[in-house]
Design a protein around this nucleic acid. Structure first.
Lengths: 125, 125
DNA sequence: CCGTATCCTGCCCGATACTG
DNA sequence: CAGTATCGGGCAGGATACGG
Protein backbone atom coordinates (compact mmCIF):
# COMPACT_ATOMS: atom_id res chain seq x y z
CA UNK A 1 0.00 0.00 0.00
CA UNK A 2 1.34 3.28 -1.12
CA UNK A 3 1.33 6.52 0.80
CA UNK A 4 -1.79 8.57 0.09
CA UNK A 5 0.10 11.73 -0.76
CA UNK A 6 3.72 11.55 -1.90
CA UNK A 7 3.95 15.09 -3.14
CA UNK A 8 7.23 16.98 -3.58
CA UNK A 9 5.24 20.20 -3.63
CA UNK A 10 4.83 19.78 0.09
CA UNK A 11 7.70 21.09 2.09
CA UNK A 12 8.00 18.07 4.35
CA UNK A 13 7.37 15.25 1.93
CA UNK A 14 10.40 12.94 1.73
CA UNK A 15 10.11 12.88 -2.06
CA UNK A 16 11.19 16.50 -2.00
CA UNK A 17 14.54 15.56 -0.55
CA UNK A 18 14.89 12.56 -2.77
CA UNK A 19 14.31 14.84 -5.73
CA UNK A 20 17.03 17.12 -4.44
CA UNK A 21 19.45 14.24 -4.31
CA UNK A 22 18.79 12.82 -7.74
CA UNK A 23 18.76 16.23 -9.40
CA UNK A 24 22.10 17.04 -7.80
CA UNK A 25 24.82 18.06 -10.23
CA UNK A 26 27.22 15.30 -9.25
CA UNK A 27 24.61 12.59 -8.93
CA UNK A 28 23.47 13.09 -12.50
CA UNK A 29 26.99 12.79 -13.85
CA UNK A 30 28.12 9.96 -11.61
CA UNK A 31 25.12 7.78 -12.32
CA UNK A 32 25.71 8.50 -15.98
CA UNK A 33 29.34 7.47 -15.64
CA UNK A 34 28.24 4.11 -14.26
CA UNK A 35 25.91 3.52 -17.15
CA UNK A 36 28.19 1.23 -19.12
CA UNK A 37 29.01 -1.09 -16.26
CA UNK A 38 31.08 -1.18 -13.07
CA UNK A 39 33.80 1.41 -12.70
CA UNK A 40 36.67 1.97 -10.33
CA UNK A 41 36.92 5.03 -8.13
CA UNK A 42 39.72 6.54 -10.15
CA UNK A 43 37.94 5.95 -13.43
CA UNK A 44 34.86 7.79 -12.27
CA UNK A 45 37.02 10.53 -10.91
CA UNK A 46 38.62 11.02 -14.30
CA UNK A 47 35.39 10.76 -16.21
CA UNK A 48 33.55 13.34 -14.14
CA UNK A 49 35.88 16.22 -14.78
CA UNK A 50 36.30 18.60 -11.88
CA UNK A 51 34.77 16.56 -9.10
CA UNK A 52 36.77 16.65 -5.90
CA UNK A 53 37.66 13.44 -4.13
CA UNK A 54 35.49 14.50 -1.25
CA UNK A 55 32.37 15.08 -3.31
CA UNK A 56 32.88 11.90 -5.26
CA UNK A 57 33.18 9.80 -2.11
CA UNK A 58 30.31 11.61 -0.48
CA UNK A 59 27.97 11.25 -3.46
CA UNK A 60 28.84 7.59 -3.96
CA UNK A 61 28.18 6.92 -0.27
CA UNK A 62 24.82 8.59 -0.52
CA UNK A 63 23.91 6.57 -3.58
CA UNK A 64 25.04 3.40 -1.85
CA UNK A 65 22.97 4.22 1.18
CA UNK A 66 19.95 4.82 -1.01
CA UNK A 67 20.42 1.42 -2.59
CA UNK A 68 21.23 2.81 -6.02
CA UNK A 69 24.88 1.84 -6.17
CA UNK A 70 26.73 -1.23 -4.95
CA UNK A 71 30.29 -0.97 -3.73
CA UNK A 72 32.62 -3.94 -4.00
CA UNK A 73 36.06 -4.13 -2.44
CA UNK A 74 38.63 -6.55 -3.83
CA UNK A 75 41.26 -7.56 -1.32
CA UNK A 76 44.20 -7.16 -3.62
CA UNK A 77 47.42 -5.28 -3.64
CA UNK A 78 47.03 -2.45 -4.42
CA UNK A 79 43.42 -2.29 -3.22
CA UNK A 80 40.69 -2.11 -5.84
CA UNK A 81 37.15 -0.86 -5.38
CA UNK A 82 34.36 -1.05 -7.89
CA UNK A 83 31.08 0.76 -8.07
CA UNK A 84 28.09 -0.47 -10.02
CA UNK A 85 24.47 0.52 -10.39
CA UNK A 86 21.98 -1.72 -8.65
CA UNK A 87 18.83 -2.73 -10.55
CA UNK A 88 17.01 0.19 -8.94
CA UNK A 89 19.89 2.48 -9.81
CA UNK A 90 19.56 1.45 -13.40
CA UNK A 91 15.97 2.59 -13.50
CA UNK A 92 17.23 6.05 -12.65
CA UNK A 93 19.41 6.17 -15.72
CA UNK A 94 16.62 6.82 -18.16
CA UNK A 95 15.22 9.98 -16.56
CA UNK A 96 18.69 11.35 -15.91
CA UNK A 97 19.81 10.63 -19.43
CA UNK A 98 16.73 12.46 -20.69
CA UNK A 99 17.85 15.50 -18.72
CA UNK A 100 21.34 15.33 -20.20
CA UNK A 101 19.94 15.01 -23.67
CA UNK A 102 17.64 17.94 -23.16
CA UNK A 103 20.54 20.10 -22.03
CA UNK A 104 22.60 19.19 -25.08
CA UNK A 105 19.73 19.68 -27.46
CA UNK A 106 18.63 23.07 -26.20
CA UNK A 107 21.95 24.61 -25.26
CA UNK A 108 22.09 26.73 -28.39
CA UNK A 109 18.60 28.12 -28.03
CA UNK A 110 19.14 28.93 -24.39
CA UNK A 111 22.33 30.80 -25.13
CA UNK A 112 20.59 32.86 -27.79
CA UNK A 113 17.77 33.67 -25.38
CA UNK A 114 20.27 34.81 -22.79
CA UNK A 115 21.98 37.15 -25.18
CA UNK A 116 18.70 38.74 -26.22
CA UNK A 117 17.68 39.10 -22.61
CA UNK A 118 20.96 40.62 -21.57
CA UNK A 119 20.97 43.09 -24.44
CA UNK A 120 17.53 44.34 -23.45
CA UNK A 121 18.41 44.50 -19.79
CA UNK A 122 21.62 46.32 -20.62
CA UNK A 123 19.82 48.94 -22.68
CA UNK A 124 17.66 49.79 -19.69
CA UNK A 125 20.67 50.68 -17.53
CA UNK B 1 25.32 22.44 -37.32
CA UNK B 2 25.79 21.32 -33.80
CA UNK B 3 28.86 21.76 -31.63
CA UNK B 4 31.24 18.86 -31.96
CA UNK B 5 31.42 18.21 -28.25
CA UNK B 6 28.62 19.36 -25.98
CA UNK B 7 29.59 17.25 -23.03
CA UNK B 8 28.54 17.94 -19.45
CA UNK B 9 31.32 15.63 -18.30
CA UNK B 10 33.73 18.38 -19.20
CA UNK B 11 34.18 20.94 -16.52
CA UNK B 12 33.86 23.95 -18.79
CA UNK B 13 31.12 22.84 -21.12
CA UNK B 14 28.13 25.18 -20.89
CA UNK B 15 25.79 22.18 -20.81
CA UNK B 16 27.19 21.44 -17.38
CA UNK B 17 25.83 24.68 -16.02
CA UNK B 18 22.57 24.30 -17.88
CA UNK B 19 22.20 20.91 -16.28
CA UNK B 20 22.78 22.49 -12.90
CA UNK B 21 20.00 24.96 -13.52
CA UNK B 22 17.38 22.53 -14.73
CA UNK B 23 18.17 19.99 -12.04
CA UNK B 24 17.84 22.70 -9.41
CA UNK B 25 15.33 21.93 -6.66
CA UNK B 26 13.17 25.01 -7.27
CA UNK B 27 13.35 24.85 -11.04
CA UNK B 28 11.92 21.36 -11.10
CA UNK B 29 8.97 22.34 -8.94
CA UNK B 30 8.31 25.71 -10.53
CA UNK B 31 8.31 24.38 -14.07
CA UNK B 32 5.98 21.67 -12.85
CA UNK B 33 3.70 24.27 -11.30
CA UNK B 34 3.40 26.01 -14.66
CA UNK B 35 2.45 22.79 -16.37
CA UNK B 36 -1.29 23.42 -16.47
CA UNK B 37 -1.10 26.88 -17.92
CA UNK B 38 -0.17 30.44 -16.90
CA UNK B 39 0.02 31.21 -13.21
CA UNK B 40 0.33 34.33 -11.14
CA UNK B 41 3.25 34.97 -8.84
CA UNK B 42 1.21 34.36 -5.72
CA UNK B 43 -0.29 31.17 -7.07
CA UNK B 44 3.10 29.67 -7.76
CA UNK B 45 4.27 30.81 -4.39
CA UNK B 46 1.44 28.93 -2.71
CA UNK B 47 1.80 25.84 -4.85
CA UNK B 48 5.52 25.44 -4.27
CA UNK B 49 5.37 25.09 -0.53
CA UNK B 50 8.29 26.60 1.31
CA UNK B 51 9.86 28.65 -1.45
CA UNK B 52 10.89 32.11 -0.34
CA UNK B 53 9.89 35.16 -2.33
CA UNK B 54 13.50 35.73 -3.13
CA UNK B 55 14.16 32.29 -4.55
CA UNK B 56 10.92 32.33 -6.49
CA UNK B 57 11.72 35.66 -8.12
CA UNK B 58 15.29 34.64 -8.73
CA UNK B 59 14.40 31.30 -10.29
CA UNK B 60 11.67 32.78 -12.46
CA UNK B 61 14.08 35.45 -13.69
CA UNK B 62 16.60 32.81 -14.59
CA UNK B 63 14.02 30.79 -16.47
CA UNK B 64 12.85 33.90 -18.27
CA UNK B 65 16.38 34.76 -19.24
CA UNK B 66 16.89 31.26 -20.57
CA UNK B 67 13.79 31.60 -22.72
CA UNK B 68 11.86 28.92 -20.86
CA UNK B 69 9.29 31.15 -19.21
CA UNK B 70 7.45 34.23 -20.45
CA UNK B 71 6.50 36.97 -18.05
CA UNK B 72 3.49 39.15 -18.79
CA UNK B 73 2.55 42.26 -16.86
CA UNK B 74 -1.01 43.51 -16.93
CA UNK B 75 -1.35 47.23 -16.23
CA UNK B 76 -4.19 46.92 -13.80
CA UNK B 77 -4.91 47.95 -10.28
CA UNK B 78 -3.71 46.09 -8.31
CA UNK B 79 -0.90 44.96 -10.62
CA UNK B 80 -1.08 41.45 -12.04
CA UNK B 81 1.77 39.39 -13.42
CA UNK B 82 1.52 36.07 -15.15
CA UNK B 83 4.15 33.46 -15.86
CA UNK B 84 3.82 30.86 -18.55
CA UNK B 85 6.05 28.24 -20.11
CA UNK B 86 7.33 29.06 -23.58
CA UNK B 87 7.25 26.32 -26.22
CA UNK B 88 10.82 25.44 -25.33
CA UNK B 89 9.93 25.48 -21.66
CA UNK B 90 7.21 22.98 -22.35
CA UNK B 91 9.70 20.53 -23.82
CA UNK B 92 11.41 20.55 -20.45
CA UNK B 93 8.30 19.34 -18.69
CA UNK B 94 8.56 15.77 -19.81
CA UNK B 95 12.04 15.02 -18.47
CA UNK B 96 11.33 16.85 -15.23
CA UNK B 97 8.06 15.06 -14.77
CA UNK B 98 9.86 11.78 -15.28
CA UNK B 99 12.17 12.70 -12.43
CA UNK B 100 9.24 13.52 -10.15
CA UNK B 101 7.57 10.26 -11.01
CA UNK B 102 10.72 8.32 -10.34
CA UNK B 103 11.04 9.90 -6.92
CA UNK B 104 7.47 9.06 -6.01
CA UNK B 105 7.73 5.53 -7.31
CA UNK B 106 10.97 4.61 -5.57
CA UNK B 107 10.62 6.53 -2.33
CA UNK B 108 9.65 3.44 -0.36
CA UNK B 109 12.50 1.29 -1.62
CA UNK B 110 15.01 4.02 -0.97
CA UNK B 111 13.82 4.47 2.58
CA UNK B 112 14.13 0.74 3.22
CA UNK B 113 17.64 0.75 1.78
CA UNK B 114 18.60 3.60 4.07
CA UNK B 115 17.40 1.82 7.14
CA UNK B 116 19.33 -1.33 6.30
CA UNK B 117 22.41 0.71 5.58
CA UNK B 118 22.16 2.69 8.79
CA UNK B 119 21.64 -0.41 10.89
CA UNK B 120 24.78 -1.97 9.49
CA UNK B 121 26.78 1.20 9.89
CA UNK B 122 25.53 1.60 13.42
CA UNK B 123 26.54 -1.93 14.38
CA UNK B 124 30.09 -1.15 13.33
CA UNK B 125 30.37 1.74 15.80
C1' DC C 1 45.01 3.12 -5.00
C1' DC C 2 41.12 4.40 -1.90
C1' DG C 3 39.33 6.67 1.73
C1' DT C 4 38.81 9.70 5.98
C1' DA C 5 39.50 13.90 8.67
C1' DT C 6 40.22 18.70 9.26
C1' DC C 7 40.12 23.30 8.08
C1' DC C 8 38.33 27.27 5.79
C1' DT C 9 35.95 29.97 2.30
C1' DG C 10 32.33 31.30 -0.53
C1' DC C 11 27.64 31.68 -1.61
C1' DC C 12 23.10 29.97 -1.14
C1' DC C 13 19.12 31.18 0.72
C1' DG C 14 15.92 32.80 4.23
C1' DA C 15 14.31 36.97 6.97
C1' DT C 16 13.25 41.52 6.92
C1' DA C 17 12.19 46.03 5.38
C1' DC C 18 10.91 49.17 1.77
C1' DT C 19 8.92 50.86 -3.25
C1' DG C 20 5.27 51.13 -7.09
C1' DC D 1 0.11 42.09 -5.33
C1' DA D 2 4.74 41.98 -7.19
C1' DG D 3 9.41 43.16 -6.83
C1' DT D 4 14.11 44.99 -5.06
C1' DA D 5 17.76 45.56 -1.55
C1' DT D 6 20.32 44.31 2.25
C1' DC D 7 22.14 41.60 5.94
C1' DG D 8 23.70 37.42 8.12
C1' DG D 9 23.76 32.36 9.33
C1' DG D 10 24.63 27.92 7.77
C1' DC D 11 26.38 24.59 5.00
C1' DA D 12 28.15 22.85 0.67
C1' DG D 13 32.22 21.86 -1.12
C1' DG D 14 37.38 22.61 -2.34
C1' DA D 15 42.33 22.04 -0.62
C1' DT D 16 45.30 19.65 2.08
C1' DA D 17 47.31 16.13 4.89
C1' DC D 18 47.30 11.70 6.58
C1' DG D 19 45.85 6.33 7.28
C1' DG D 20 45.02 1.43 5.37
Amino acid sequence: MTQFALDPYNRNCPTRRLLDRIGDRWTVLIVGALGDGPRRFGEISRRVDGVSQKMLTQTLRGLERDGLVRRTVYAEMPPRVEYALTPVGETLQEPLRALEDWAREHMGGVQDARESYDVLAGSAA
